[in-house]
Amino acid sequence: MGVSFASRVVLITGASRGIGRAVALAFARERALLVLAARSAERLAQVEGEVRALGAEALSVPTDVTSPDEVRALVNAAVSRFGRIDVLVNNAGIGKVGCVESETFEDNVRQTMRASLFGMINVTQRVLPVLRRQGSGAIVNMSSVMGRKAFARFGSYAIVMHGVSAFSDNLRQEVADGGIRVSVIYPALTATDLLREANEAEMPPPFRHMTPLSADAVARAVVAAVAKGKRRVVLPRMANMLLLGEALSPRIGDLIATALTKQRIARLFRMSNGKTYHETIAGYPG
């Protein structure tokens, strides 16, 4: 990779499962020092054990990213233990499925906004003074392809992921003079618990037969983005065609989104070539 993460301090939110866990293990293999944050102390302890089994050091701090006091304690614990923070991975968040006419839509937006955007802002604001003092650092914000192109029935999540995109673009420009780099990761559907509670009929139409990315693939992209200073990463690469179409014309973007509801088209885009989302996560612990 050309960049050593040995002894660099990486703070990861939402680290107890899914992409966060995979990111923690990916950086552990690079011999980074890990600060793991999530609400579940039990799950964090399990991931910490996995990190240590790979020969890396870790500090677990149960944290609700929507709580300013808990985030303050998290950052203080990281600096007290390791003296610095080199990489912040903002991964904590939730997602809910439902159409705009649903009675729960407005509440879904509020809940997702609080956890996935305001939580991200909260952690970033606490970490930035540390990075400023150091004169260096990297921030990785987890968004989604939905952060560039919304799909039907996933509007509440897409609204927030668009917010993550705007926040990240703004932040990148504001901190560029401080030696701080900002990367945004835009994965398509990924094999995590995000949509476990949604039944297949409720899923956004293009997702119903789509083969999800692995959390490990997303984690490798995060490590590479930090190593190479990438501003934006879209996964899989073919998803860029959807985003390009949307950038050219909303009509083209909508046509591609509609086309992806057909399995043969999704296969052509290399986004349907195995098990569906629910088939993939069926064997995962709840």
Results as ranks from 00 to 15, higher is better:
L213W: 00
E246V: 08
D254N: 14
R267E: 13
V3E: 07
A152V: 12
N199P: 11
G163M: 07
N122D: 08
A24E: 07
R43K: 15
G245R: 03
G283P: 08
T280F: 04
I94R: 14
V87G: 11
R81D: 03
K262M: 04
A58H: 08
P285M: 08
S7I: 05
S183L: 05
R181F: 10
L128N: 08
M210V: 01
M161C: 11
V87P: 09
A28T: 10
F105W: 13
V79L: 08
A257N: 07
R126A: 14
R231S: 10
I180C: 12
A152S: 14
R220H: 10
M120A: 14
V184A: 10
P187G: 06
E197N: 15
M271T: 09
L33E: 14
E70A: 14
P250L: 11
R84K: 15
P250N: 12
A215T: 07
A259K: 03
D107S: 14
D64A: 07
E57R: 15
G83D: 12
A266K: 00
G137C: 13
T258G: 10
I85V: 15
N76Q: 13
R126Y: 12
G20E: 02
T258E: 12
N240T: 12
F151T: 09
A77Q: 06
G253Q: 13
F151V: 12
A201W: 05
Y186D: 07
A138F: 12
G137V: 12
R270I: 02
N141F: 00
E30P: 01
